[in-house]
Design a protein around this nucleic acid. Sequence first.
RNA 1: GUCCCCAUCGUCUAGCCCGGCCCAGGACACCGCCCUUUCACGGCGGCGACGCCGGUUCAAAUCCGGCUGGGGACGCCA
Length: 468
Amino acid sequence: MSEVRLRFAPSPTGYLHVGGARTALFNWLLAKKEQGKFILRIEDTDVARSTQESVDAILEGMRWLGLDWDEGPFFQSENFPLYKEFAAKLLAQGKAYKCYCTAEELEAKREKALASGSKPKYDGTCRSLNADIPGKPYVVRFKAPHEGVTAFDDLVKGPISFNNEELDDLIIQRSDGTPTYNFTVVVDDVSMAITTVIRGDDHVNNTPRQILLYEALGCPVPQFAHVPMILGADKSRLSKRHGATSVMAYRDMGFLPEAMVNYLVRLGWSYGDEEIFSLDELIDKFSIETVGRSAGVFNPDKLLWLNAHYIKTGDPQRLAELLAPFLAERGVNAGRGPNLVAVIRTLQERSRTMLEMADGAVFYYRDTFVYDPQAVDKFLKPDVVPLFEQVRDRLGKLDDFSHQGIETVIKGICDERGIKMGQLGPPIRVALCGGTTSPSIYEVIEVLGKDATLNRITRALEFVRSHV
RNA sequence: GUCCCCAUCGUCUAGCCCGGCCCAGGACACCGCCCUUUCACGGCGGCGACGCCGGUUCAAAUCCGGCUGGGGACGCCA
């Protein structure tokens, strides 16, 4: 049994979007699972719309997700001679012909057909022309059969068949000599010995044409797997108006790649009741046959939930690296101040994104933050002065500056004074953090350290005294 | 318009191939309670679906047909 060879073949006309990322992921997973090869091919035959920035963006997205490729990236723009050769071969064999109809003529016919309610397909004017008209521009058309049926067994959709009369003679080479999509895909999939084509649903209609091309070329037809599209909340094709569609935009919003991967794979695929999958687990459990047949709605809430899960269970050290750019954006220098890993530990279970975590971490690194006015009205009142003085005093004398030691001190003060934690905790929180929400104050005090804690208590004391 | 595909809670889905264990299970979201110094985490509970109509059968979410609805494709784009 020969090895399976799969490919992801994006066209570089934009960034890597979530739909593309998902088909890339499925290809990658199947290749890994079957211990085959995963090939990256850039479909840049449309020179006008392809850009280097898009190529870079796509590669960056793939790398971020952890989808490495075994071969490539190959560029179709470098294969033009090959396509020409194949086109010439079909021409020589009478399986293709030169068509001299102009784009304008074709456009007019198409509109007319559409208006009259029939299927807009090429009428075959030049099909039997059989003449060379020197000097006149022409395209090369594939001579498709007009009778019979072209069928294939889709790995996810099952049997699909088309009546050949629905097909027309597609252009395989433009008048400028460049090849078109349906032709380059076939030529490349043949020359790269692709065994399985996993691609978006929107390509099923191209499949019979391509199969006919494989047959005309005398090449084996690969297996096809058409994965359903991703829809927006209104069930229409996912687009920018539904929110971010760029994979990298999610990184910038503080999402972890493993959350993105996990979300994408579960959109249209499942493994019993399991929700959480690592890349390694997926390689073991994934199978293309169990991918669902219907389109799925992109649900940002679930992505968020998965992201929260991975942040919660993630390695703080790694999270620290991922958090760095977000902190930098906020002008925070984590090199000075509390230990970043310790800070992160206090934030992991209350952050759904790295962005939220960054926001939650800022106070640790700012000694002179502005107190939240509402919090001041509620908690920084004159009666906290003796409390704060005692806290400062006790904490100052504390040797065991651990969560446990700190908690004992704070609770001890509550007991001595006969007050509830609810009367002491919130004011301390405002003094230390500036607002009313933060991690446990024991953790905050511990992470802040004795000096910073005492300084902040003192500062709050001064604030209260001067505002009476 | 023509062709192709799809159809279980609001959303992602299990179950469907090999009818009965399903008055349909899980997850997200939402609501309530508990935990609690805040915000969260967590725990417990609740709300909530087999699109419709026929057929086959002792029995249908599961099989068949039609309808309706949704999506996609119809380019010298990919």
